[in-house]
Amino acid sequence: MRAFVFPGQGAQTIGMGKALADAYPAAKAVFEEVNESLGEDLSGLIWGGDIEELTLTANAQPALMATSMAVMRALEAEGVTIEAASFVAGHSLGEYSALAAAGAITLADTARLLRARGLAMQDAVPVGVGAMAAILGLDLAAVKQVAAEAAQAEVCQAANDNDPAQVVVSGHKAAVERAVEIAKAKGAKRALLLPVSAPFHCSLMQPAADAMARALADVKITDPKVPVVANVLAQAEADGAQIRGLLEQQITGAVRWRESVMYMAAQGVTDVYEIGAGKALSGMVKRIDRGLTTTAVGTPESVVAVAAAMNK
């Protein structure tokens, strides 16, 4: 069994998806449709802009989704459809890419939702008030204890359970800084603040969750062609009506990536394909379950190779 997984923020690079757009008209059409839906030349920024501007949350989110969808269109041109996967899943914003790939939300609506999501998440907390930190070498239970100890009447929560040795905390800056020191004292291999613009996936994001509830209310969400393993559930959901609420919860809820991968493996998944920019999820998947085979698909060459293997 196969799973297609879709990367989240941090995977963005200048030039991502350009070779695919040059090689596949259907991939180029993805970027053109995203440009049109947003009313701007996002592909120009992706392919020839400034990395700091691309990294802004409101740009990175639709840009990464567009790149993932360009890979999907290239795969389709080579005869591989989304139904080749038994499950799809995405890391944070990647869940929107997964839903678009599975046909639950149109490409144009997904781009507009992610622009709204990025702006809402950026605006939810003033710059400098919140922070996130990666804790390496402690498991989820230990990091939850660290966060609780560090909170001291502020917000500090486990936000991303990425793999057995990497959990990210999010919340008020001072609380997150305390968590870094407490984690080091408790034996973390490393604990470091992340270069992010807001404290994602914690209760400070409630204003963004409210904004997304309004944005999602205006969008048609249908049942996905392939079950989506939702971040907040760490299990599959195939009901479009339920997915709307899960996307709202995802803004303040933890990204349960480790459990999501374990769930897919328990259902019989053996091969995981990372669809889009970078290889970050492939590394996490291998650390979660070494028995899983991972393949990053983000270039024309990788598309051709994967299609040849699947079409045998």
Rank of each mutant, 00 (worst) to 15 (best):
130 G>T: 07
12 Q>G: 08
310 M>F: 13
246 L>H: 02
197 S>L: 03
145 Q>C: 04
196 V>Y: 02
273 Y>L: 15
34 V>I: 13
228 V>K: 05
70 A>F: 06
312 K>W: 11
311 N>R: 14
243 I>E: 01
281 L>V: 13
114 L>R: 10
69 M>Q: 14
187 G>A: 06
285 V>H: 10
108 A>K: 15
151 A>W: 12
134 A>K: 09
302 S>I: 02
167 V>N: 02
107 L>V: 12
69 M>G: 08
63 A>L: 03
96 Y>N: 11
286 K>T: 14
174 A>I: 09
78 E>Y: 00
174 A>S: 14
183 A>K: 10
288 I>C: 02
17 G>Y: 11
112 R>L: 05
193 L>Y: 04
221 I>L: 13
283 G>Q: 11
270 T>P: 07
35 N>V: 11
24 Y>P: 10
101 A>N: 12
271 D>V: 03
177 E>R: 06
93 L>K: 06
5 V>Q: 09
267 Q>L: 07
10 G>A: 10
220 K>E: 15
236 A>R: 00
259 E>I: 03
243 I>F: 01
287 R>L: 02
35 N>D: 15
183 A>H: 03
2 R>Y: 15
6 F>M: 06
131 A>S: 12
51 I>W: 09
166 Q>G: 03
4 F>H: 10
289 D>S: 10
213 A>M: 04
305 A>M: 00
96 Y>W: 14
15 G>L: 06
95 E>K: 04
7 P>S: 10
6 F>A: 06
43 S>F: 15
267 Q>E: 15
205 M>Q: 10
144 K>P: 04
29 A>D: 14
270 T>I: 06
249 Q>I: 04
216 L>D: 05
